[in-house]
Amino acid sequence: MPRLHKRHDRSDIFIHWFNAACWLLLLLTGVGLIQNPAIDPFGSGYPEALRNLVGGGGNLLAVHEGIGLAWIAGFVLYLLVNFKGARFFLAEVFAVSPGRDMAWMLKKMVLMTLGPKALKLLGMDPSLPDQGYYNMGQKAFAQASVVGGIVIAATGVVMYLSDRTLGAEASGWISWAVTLHFIAVGLVFAGLLVHVYMAAISPEERPGFKSMFTGSVPDGYAKHHHRLWWNKISAGEE
């Protein structure tokens, strides 16, 4: 049996897939809530069709708010259950080693789209700098998700409270909350497309994808993709 290294707790796996499910539903319902010709992301009849499906814009808003509150509650629950895991995650994703990580990021982008020959043509060594627990691509998306997620949740709560407790003097805040909610979701979504491809479709990361169900990765994968982490755990085992 190949040697395995534990990467994710059960609570980590839960919050990942819970977050993914919420994001999918919140995106689908949220896009349907934007209906202004200047903004409508697809410039289509989607908002109209979705509103008809659920019996009006008010119902769609209620569904979106309900899922959004459940999403926030899920994260609060996760923090209560595994605060240590969350702190480890945050420390890892925000620890950037500029030279090493930028070089990795730029080379990886060329490798994934144009291939190693393109790097060689530019006179660059196509091998990638060693990466730690997360590679720079994962870190960049995690950073965007964390910062974006906090902005999305906070602005979401402001909008939720708008017609429940907030007065007219707060409407400047509420209006900015609408705008920031939209921008933050848009930016994280742009990263999400790459995240889904890299994790679920690209064959290279297949063991990483599987670990989001099983919790652990094979030794070879850890050594090949996360050398600095592998060095650390290997040294610890000796």
């Binding site: 982008m109 490798l111 994934m112 789209t113 144009l114 291939g115 190693p116 020959k117 790097l119 196509p126 091998s127 990638l128 060693d130 990466q131 848009g186 930016l187 979504f189 742009a190 990263g191 497309l193 790459v194 491809y197 890299m198 479709i201 690209s202 064959p203 290279e204 050594k223 090949h224 993709h225 996360h226 050398r227």
Partner: peptide
């Protein structure tokens, strides 16, 4: 930005499907 990201994904998918090799063996991942 979303379009650009989508194009990037399509480029990666195209390379995965049609270029045959993922570049593995041609370079070192680590």
């Amino acid at each position: 930005l979303v379009g650009l990201s989508g194009l990037g994904v399509l480029a990666m998918l195209g390379r995965q499907l049609f270029a045959g090799d993922s570049g593995e063996g041609d370079h070192k991942e680590d």
